[in-house]
Design a protein around this nucleic acid. Sequence first.
RNA 1: GGCAUCGUGGCCGAGUGGCUAGGCACAGCUCUGCAAAAGCUUGUACAGCGGUUCGAAUCCGCUCGAUGCCUCCA
Length: 483
Amino acid sequence: MVHNSLSGKKELFEPLHEGYVGMYVCGPTVYSNVHLGNCRTFMSFDMIFRYLRHLGYKVRYVRNITDAGHLEDDADQGEDKIAKKARLEQIEPMEVVQRYTVDFHNILEKFNFLPPSIEPTATGHIVEQIEIIKVILDKGYAYEKNGSVYFDVVKFNSDHEYGKLSGRKLEDMIANTRELTAQDEKKNPQDFALWKRAEPQHIMRWPSPWGEGFPGWHLECTVMSTKYLGETFDIHGGGMDLKFPHHECEIAQAEASNDVSPVRYWLHANMLTLNGKKMAKSTGNNLLPHEIFTGDNPTLSKAYTASVVRFFMMQAHYTSILDLSDDALLAAEKGYNRLMDALDLLGNLNTGKQSDMDVAAWKQRCYDAMNDDFNSPVLIAQLFEAVKTINLVNDGKASLTQEDLAVLTEVMNAFVFDVLGLETRTGAGVESNKLEGVVGLLIELRNAARANKDYATSDRIRDELAAMGIQLKDGKEGTTFSI
RNA sequence: GGCAUCGUGGCCGAGUGGCUAGGCACAGCUCUGCAAAAGCUUGUACAGCGGUUCGAAUCCGCUCGAUGCCUCCA
């Protein structure tokens, strides 16, 4: 079952071709550092991609990079975002693209994203974009004006339905349009650009039948999705904010050129807010992904690992608004640690003659959760049911048969690592090995002091390490530490 | 102003017509030289007001509030 934005309901998911899934997700416009909310969207689809693969589907996952054509405002009067940034920073447009594409990939790698099957760029598909504009022009759903080509929304709406995805009616939109200045070229304010004439100072430009220019936003997604997935494909994803106008325009372009509705299931990931408010650079209520890893932001009390953030995001359903705050991350970190502690125990549990847990039923509940519109929070609740059992078995208060433990281990690993994409807490690296040695020595000294009842010394070691942020944990099998 | 989504216990966050979500925090217990850590146990909430129903957090209506889009932002 998936939630289809087109119908507003949960529908049974049936791929177009049995065993295969085509999925397209609107990628970033690479003109600045990737937005944390954007990361959440991609993480949701990464989880969906992972789960579909886990179920055995052969998935072709296409996520584009928009490196041209995203105009500054939807009145289509603005300037290409990338060109603008390049001008401001006095560098080549492709230098901007390169810099932020690399940043995007770095951040996603930290979050343990699976790479998509294809990651096409808008600039790599200028020819295809020009071709589709010709088709739309031929069919009469677009018009050229002074070297620019606009999509004729009113014409399209006369024999198609514009606004069906976002629940808007063209008449309402016309009634609510503000007066915009310099709206001379478009027949209607709702029309959007397929091709924009490049002004003389514009540095991103390509030749076309209508003169030198650059493609309009929306078009690259239509072109690249149909090129790699076909005229109709299974899943189209993106952030909720792209529902209108971007996805609406994609539907219009595809229907105008191919006469078929392009997407069977529209999936929209909801927004991420920060401390209850939307993130915006202008208000300072903003948090960059790398600032979470360093803790270098006024809203955070400390740094968090990528897996903790990922766990935090997976604890909310992808269609719900999620509010990020320091308290919420702190809580998520503890829950994540508890999950990982249990996973560590899994390898050396004693098995018994009977099981105090119905592992088969539990496994089914895990799949039921994910089959219900990828309900990762319910899945996590189930995983914690297993954590409880693991801890009880570890304490000798419950038992599992060898077979059940094997199933439990397999299912836990599959969901935690393969589907949710979490990673273990690794302190790998030379520096941390040294640190481990040093702290290990201090632990030895402290335990020696404790054996001698020299508590002044033992407490001094413990408390001073604590002051440095290193916490000692006395367990049954000895003392461990965490930072 | 229009459209959309949503308002759940101290906090985060599932559920969506009758049966304990889960995590964090708090409390109690176990463990411990004392702690911390860890483990176990407990906690009965659904914005407000009406309505439908044998029964509503869950459906309908209204009010209030939030978030998103409509205008750059995922």
